[in-house]
Structure formats: structure tokens, C-alpha cells
Design a protein around this nucleic acid. Structure first.
Length: 471
DNA sequence: TGGGGTTAT
DNA sequence: ATAACCC
């Protein structure tokens, strides 16, 4: 028979079942259990794939410049090699390596400037769109990673199969730990079909876009992401539930757990938590006291390989920004010039998108000898008369925008005092569908006093009236 | 550390 | 507006 039979035959991964990822040694983790934090242990039987392009910027550059293929290539932003191809890696170049160190390690290294992200961004969205053809549930993570929820696709494919075909299903790519497949286990079968879809995705990326990448297939985003990196360039791996503990225990430090960043890792270290096992067995009450219930709950679940966060379809971007970093900017005139450059690029992008931003933000980074990474920002609504000029190339939209940005600038920086900036960034956000009405009709409905949001879309229109800033 | 992005508070 | 996270 088909799915129903298979379902009964398997060790029932359905129902109010055990954890997604049963602990290997139930005795060794009193923390979570005794503190009684875990609510439902939602046994997700989802099939998620994480697709991760190999050294993405370098790949795009090799497509643009085929003569560079086979040679060690690095992509440079300012004084950093932000990524490089595998030829360069074999010669000792690492991601985010200083240009000087990289050249020292590898004098033949060819560097291309990658500060303009336009082509990378365009290729990135082509990848996402290709994946959306498989399933519409695609979540972007940066420019070079995507999660896809394959649960539905996989169910449909399994339903097409007769029971005698079920045992003929094969895995595509690696199985983590070389774990044997149980053809009577439904979740195993789902994941195998997931691995086949992943292979098709990678094939399509290669045939249609010329790109290679890795894929990881597992029952949630965390595990899919972790397992995608197990075999590295241009390979894929599927994780079967029984090997979940091995995967998360293969991490050498909690900082390697996606979702535990620099700050949280530092605070955990103070508590003596360094390994994933440390986090698993740590008292939840104390963890909650230190990090708050939200973070504590989330990361302790992560430590068990549990992650119920859904794959959220990214859709079009929520914001557009352009930034530039530099050694020093210390005059208003200089800042204005840089802001104008950033704005000009942004206007092109926003124009192509079709939607219109209703908010603009200026971001700065002030120089400070050690205290690294602190940005300040000011934002304000974009006046409606300026928004309306955005799509039309006709009128000068630069002038009013620059005026607004310079007011925001002076709101943050006292220009009568000496200052030293190392970064400027302009961001358009609060994007709304265009008011491309057949003048009159739609305009009428969208007029603020008459708008009742009873319309279709989920975005509510509000032609905000002049909304300048008080500067 | 670049030049981007997101969500939560 | 900031802070955390991701690449």
C-alpha cells in the first residue's frame, strides 16, 4: 500500500510524539526536564531543505569573468577579502581575511572589488525565485542561503508511490553518519524524497544559473542548516532523526549554534556554558534569570536540536539600504557628498522595485578607539509629495531627499563640534505597494479620510500628509 | 571586519 | 531607536 500503510509501519513519528530529536542519553539532561520548561515538544514531521551557495560572490565574479576560473580569486571590500573561491582557500586564504595577510599567504591571489552588491543581489534573487518554483515557501538568509519547506511536495510525491515502489526510493547525496535507512519509517522516507528534491534544486541552479551549492535536508531549519555544511563544496546531506544528537554534539562551541550570537555566547561563557551539552543540562531557571524567558527557552531548545520556527516566505525585501565605510569623514560637506552618492543608487533600486518607501533612515558610525560596533540612526516619514515623485523620472527628487537626510544628519551630529565618522548608510523602508491608480478611482478609495482598510491586500494604504521632521 | 539583511524590545 | 541575530 501507500502512505497510510507506511505510516503505521514506522515508529510513529506523528501524534503528540516524543521530541523531534530524541536525546541520545535521556539520563544526562535533567535541566530541561526537571525545570519543566518544555511545553509540547512539538514533534514536527516537516521536511526542510537549507540551500547554501558555495562562495557566492566569487562564483558570480567567475561567471562575469570566465577567464578567472581555475585561478585563486578573492572578492575585496575595503581592506578585506570577504570571500574567495576554493582555489584560493587551498592556498590558505580565509573568509574576512585582511588583504595584506591574504596577499602574503597567496601572492598569486587575484582580487576583484565587491563593494557594489548589485550583481550579487540580482543573482541572489534569481536563486530564490528558482527555488520558489519548487515550493512557494522560501525564506532567504543573507544573499546566499535559502530555506525551503518541502513538507507538502514530499507528501504529494509519496502519495504517488505504490507500496512496492516505496522500497525502491533512494537517497540523493550523503546520509549523515552513514546511518542506515529504514524503509518502513515514514520520516525516513519523507527525508529521502526531500533529498531527491534537494538534488533537483541543485541541478536546476546549475543548469539554469551556472551556480553550485550545498544542501541539507532535515526536519527543521536548525538541523537542515547544520547538516548542509557537513560535506562542503557542492554536495548535500540528509539528517535522519536518530543522528540528531550526534550532529549537534559535533559542534565544538555554543557560538556555532545558529541563533546563538556573539553577545549571548559571551554571557553563556560567564555561566560556564561552553559546549552544547553544557547548555542542554544547565538549569533553566538560572538561564531564564540571566537571559529572559524568551531567549532562554529558545536557545535551550536549540541545544536539543529543537526548532519549531516556521520557514517564513521572505517575499520582496522589507528595506533597501546602501552604506559606505571609510577611515574618516569629519565635515558636513563631505558627509553630504557621500549621502548623495548613496541616495542616487538607492533611488535607482527603489524605482525598479515598483513599491514606494514611506520612511527614510540615516545611519552613522562614529569613530571610537576600541568600543567596536555602535551605530546610531534617525528616521522620519518621507513627505507624500516626495513619495509621489519617486517613480517618475521627471522631477528632482534628490534635492528634497538630501534636505531631509541632512536634517537627520544634523540631528545626530553636532556639526559645530569636531566629529569623526567611519560609516554612513541610507535606508528606505516601510515599503508600500504603489498607488498606481487610474487616477481618481483608486486615489479616492485610498484617501486617508475615506480609507477603511477594507481593501484586499494586507498592506494598509495611508497617504500620509506632509510628515517632515522637526529639525 | 564589509555591505548588506531580519525580528524583537 | 536600539539591540540582537543572520550572511
Amino acid at each position: 500500500m501507500e502512505l497510510a500503510d507506511a505510516e503505521a509501519a514506522g515508529p510513529s513519528p506523528e501524534a503528540p510524539a516524543p521530541a523531534e530529536c530524541a536525546p541520545a542519553e535521556p539520563g544526562g539532561l535533567p535541566g530541561l526536564v526537571h525545570d519543566q520548561l518544555v511545553p509540547t515538544q512539538s514533534s514536527s514531521s516537516r521536511v526542510i531543505v537549507h540551500v547554501d551557495l558555495d562562495c557566492f560572490y566569487a562564483q558570480v565574479e567567475m561567471i562575469s569573468h570566465p577567464e578567472l576560473k581555475g585561478k585563486p580569486l578573492g572578492v575585496q571590500q575595503k581592506y578585506l577579502v570577504v570571500t574567495c573561491n576554493y582555489e584560493a582557500r587551498e592556498l590558505g586564504v580565509k573568509k574576512l581575511m585582511n588583504v595584506r595577510d591574504a596577499k602574503e599567504k597567496c601572492p598569486q591571489l587575484i582580487l576583484v572589488n565587491g563593494e557594489d552588491l548589485t550583481r550579487y543581489r540580482e543573482m541572489s534573487y534569481k536563486v530564490t525565485e528558482l527555488l520558489e518554483e519548487f515550493s512557494p515557501i522560501v525564506e532567504r538568509l543573507g544573499f546566499d542561503e535559502n530555506f525551503v519547506d518541502l513538507t507538502e511536495m514530499v507528501e504529494k510525491r509519496l502519495q504517488q508511490l505504490q507500496s512496492n515502489e516505496l522500497s525502491a526510493v533512494t537517497v540523493s547525496g550523503h546520509v549523515y553518519n552513514n546511518q542506515p535507512v529504514n524503509f518502513h519509517n515514514v520520516m525516513h522516507m519523507r527525508l529521502l524524497v526531500g533529498s531527491q528534491v534537494a538534488a533537483e534544486m541543485r541541478e536546476a541552479m546549475h543548469n539554469q544559473l551556472g551556480l553550485t551549492g550545498c544542501a541539507g535536508v532535515a526536519s527543521n531549519k536548525l538541523l537542515a542548516k547544520l547538516v548542509s555544511g557537513v560535506f562542503k563544496p557542492n554536495q548535500q546531506t540528509v539528517l535522519l532523526p536518530e543522528s540528531c544528537q550526534d550532529l549537534i554534539n559535533s559542534l565544538n562551541h555554543i557560538k556555532e549554534m545558529p541563533g546563538i550570537g556573539y553577545k549571548t555566547a559571551k554571557r553563556l561563557e560567564v555561566l560556564g556554558i561552553n559546549s552544547v551539552r553544557d547548555l542542554q543540562s544547565f538549569s533553566f531557571k538560572i538561564l531564564e534569570k540571566e537571559l529572559g524567558i524568551s531567549v532562554a527557552q529558545r536557545i535551550q531548545k536549540l541545544s536539543f536540536g529543537e526548532d519549531n520556527s516556521p520557514v517564513m516566505p521572505s517575499g520582496p525585501p522589507q528595506s533597501f539600504s546602501e552604506e559606505d565605510s571609510f577611515k574618516k569623514c569629519s565635515s558636513e560637506v563631505e558627509a553630504k557628498k557621500k549621502i548623495e552618492e548613496l541616495l542616487a543608487s538607492l533611488l535607482n533600486r527603489v524605482c525598479q522595485d515598483g513599491r514606494r518607501p514611506h520612511t527614510i533612515r540615516l545611519v552613522i558610525r562614529r569613530y571610537s578607539p576600541e568600543k567596536h560596533y555602535s551605530r546610531e540612526s534617525r528616521q522620519c516619514p518621507i513627505p507624500s509629495h516626495v513619495i509621489q515623485k519617486l517613480g517618475t523620472g521627471n522631477y528632482d527628487v534628490m534635492t528634497p531627499m538630501v534636505d531631509i537626510l541632512m536634517k537627520l544628519f544634523r540631528n545626530m551630529v553636532n556639526v559645530k563640534m569636531p566629529f569623526h565618522l567611519t560609516l554612513l548608510s541610507v535606508c528606505f523602508c516601510n515599503l508600500k505597494a504603489q498607488n498606481t491608480a487610474k487616477k481618481g478611482l483608486i486615489d479616492y478609495y485610498l484617501t486617508p479620510s475615506l480609507s477603511t482598510t477594507s481593501h484586499s491586500g494586507k498592506r494598509s494604504f495611508h497617504s500620509t500628509s506632509s510628515a517632515g521632521i522637526t529639525g
